[in-house]
Design a protein around this nucleic acid. Sequence first.
DNA 1: TATGAATGAGCGTTCATTCAT
DNA 2: CATGAATGAACGCTCATTCAT
Lengths: 222, 222, 222, 222
Amino acid sequence: MKTDLAGPAPRWARRKQARPAELLAAALDVFVERGFAATRLDDIALRAGVTKGTLYLYYDSKEDLLKAVVRAGMVPVVREAEAMVAHFTGSTAELMRNLAAVWWNAIGATRLSGIPKLVIAEAGNFPEVARLYHDEVIRPVSELIGRLLQRGMDSGEFRSVDADYMQRIAMAPLVMLNLWMHSFSRYDAYALDPPRYLAAYLDILLAGLAPRSETQGNRSCR
Amino acid sequence: MKTDLAGPAPRWARRKQARPAELLAAALDVFVERGFAATRLDDIALRAGVTKGTLYLYYDSKEDLLKAVVRAGMVPVVREAEAMVAHFTGSTAELMRNLAAVWWNAIGATRLSGIPKLVIAEAGNFPEVARLYHDEVIRPVSELIGRLLQRGMDSGEFRSVDADYMQRIAMAPLVMLNLWMHSFSRYDAYALDPPRYLAAYLDILLAGLAPRSETQGNRSCR
Amino acid sequence: MKTDLAGPAPRWARRKQARPAELLAAALDVFVERGFAATRLDDIALRAGVTKGTLYLYYDSKEDLLKAVVRAGMVPVVREAEAMVAHFTGSTAELMRNLAAVWWNAIGATRLSGIPKLVIAEAGNFPEVARLYHDEVIRPVSELIGRLLQRGMDSGEFRSVDADYMQRIAMAPLVMLNLWMHSFSRYDAYALDPPRYLAAYLDILLAGLAPRSETQGNRSCR
Amino acid sequence: MKTDLAGPAPRWARRKQARPAELLAAALDVFVERGFAATRLDDIALRAGVTKGTLYLYYDSKEDLLKAVVRAGMVPVVREAEAMVAHFTGSTAELMRNLAAVWWNAIGATRLSGIPKLVIAEAGNFPEVARLYHDEVIRPVSELIGRLLQRGMDSGEFRSVDADYMQRIAMAPLVMLNLWMHSFSRYDAYALDPPRYLAAYLDILLAGLAPRSETQGNRSCR
DNA sequence: TATGAATGAGCGTTCATTCAT
DNA sequence: CATGAATGAACGCTCATTCAT
């Protein structure tokens, strides 16, 4: 799965058209490494192989750059996820497993995984970033997951739950994995094992959604 | 349930002893509102009703203030949770429900709920803050929840799960609720309903931990 | 030879009367160690075993403290030198040797040796300090040395020189020794040997003052 | 004789290349006037016709600026003195008179004369400044004067003296003249006449170095 | 007399943003 | 398009001075 953010700027590809993507790639790197406030535009320019002034030819301000990074990085992945769901024909549980894998490959294992931390940290200071991220990323994904849960309930695969809120609960561990990787996991002692984390996640999520046997309550389903 | 952070500094209580707590309360407020980097020491001082220099009579630096805020805010709550678990005698599920309620009352519904966002945002820039929060908050809580899961499994109340990682999954939605409240929930349109969120959370968590019926697979627990 | 500046404050001597001298001793130490600007009143107070506020019971300001240190440290030594000269009966050359020794014992080898550097560095910023030091220290000493040179010329011991300016030249190496000890000599590699320095100084000074050729009359040395 | 430090920055010469020298000239002026600690970067910038931030485009810190001022100001003069000595063919006494004149024209009569006071005052607080000044200025000059004395002794022009220490004694009155000009001479009442001072200096220095007549030593005149 | 908490003005340094070239 | 020198507004931290106790 590809994103619009270029990889480490290849020197030979300095076409004018490629410039913005190169800048965004550099900006993403540094924003994720240092956080928004601690990032100097000089660092971004240095990593992109340009000078600070050049950034202003493409983006109006540091905040504008942040918004571009968020949008260019996340929206394509959202689109892709939506396309995947639209064409999937298997069981809902299978679909959720696939989605988790896609999410891991497209975001979790890439530099994009740093975006949620960035956005959460700055949402309070930059309403436009909050709105952008919510409307372009969170809302579509929420609706996607909400529809998925509904699909599972409709088919009898899942028991009846509060779909609107359950999708939030379902997303939380995935987001937290990203946050952890870009906060505590930076220190070796606090690192965790993502596959094992994801396995535990899918285990309890699907178990929790599975219909209870008719004759048994939750507590007594033993 | 109370915290160690005092309310808005009463003018008449300028006792030396009360000062540090007043400063921490003000610092917490502003840090949570603005984030660490965007917070000016002048703002904290203003809110505490003192001048900037006074802060340095009690704390060595802005980072030191952050560490004090985190420690003074969270450690007592952790202790309280540990005490509660140690004396509880009911079912593990009930204990988990109680813990969620305690957590909500002591943290979620107070200004302390802003600390996780602060720490996650700054953990990368301030290793000491990361270490402090992990060792004094995350680790004890993780172990607490891990023991809880083990207790449930031992008693047959819960099915067998990867306790170490499952506690991370179990904590994630609670942390995410805090993060949400201090990022997107600031904008009315994106607010959510905490009780409903917590209900959905406990619903799926306990359902997911409940033993499956012996004769039936996950899908077919009917 | 004693000064008015007390040694390391003896705890048992905390008579009110002794306080000002203790403060001055502490102030001299720290001023000499760090320079005027880099010295914090807190450091002086700490060394004197009092608190910062106490300093203001005895001295109006940091500059006032500096003036007191300079006056209390140097004036007694000047008086002593004047007394010594007044009672001396030997040759002028011998008197100058004695004066150099007295100067070394009373100033060069004590903490007072740091005062010239202090005064020279701050004279431009504090006219009162400049005036004080010049009128109470430099002028008396200049006149003393000038009279000495005149005495030597009158007696035929010295050749005829520009007494007024020669006393400045004569003082320069002694002052420079003090300055060196409190600047470069702080670094071992740049230290020098004071006795050897003083020997070379007296050697050339007295040789330079001695009457020239044999055929020229040397009234007192024939 | 010129120095590398430009005069009052001409507005029309805002070439990038000229900037550093303009900044150093301004810095030298203000450092000498106020001393290092009392100098505000704003003052230097104002005098150079730039803003404070501009200083940091060329120098890393206030201390770095001090080092640059010292190096750029003194090293060329040292080189010049060394070149002059290397090519001189007259008598050693004549050479010393010439050196004193060169020193006066290149340093004593220029703003550079303020540097020794600066360095002596700050050597204790800034080891790097001390080392720089000692290794790049004091040591070369000391060696130069030491060789000169040796040359005079070898040729029989001078009597035998402790060359290593005598060069220190010989330099002291010149340094002291600089210090005086930038401390007490600021106040008219305490000003002195440099030519007369230098005449007295050369008078006694050369007289003191001259060989004694065989029959009458200085020492035997008691 | 002595304390020490509090002040408030000040300074070195940083960095997003601008603009002449 | 691109540069990079310059700006100027901040902000963290310091410390001489004050004053209620």
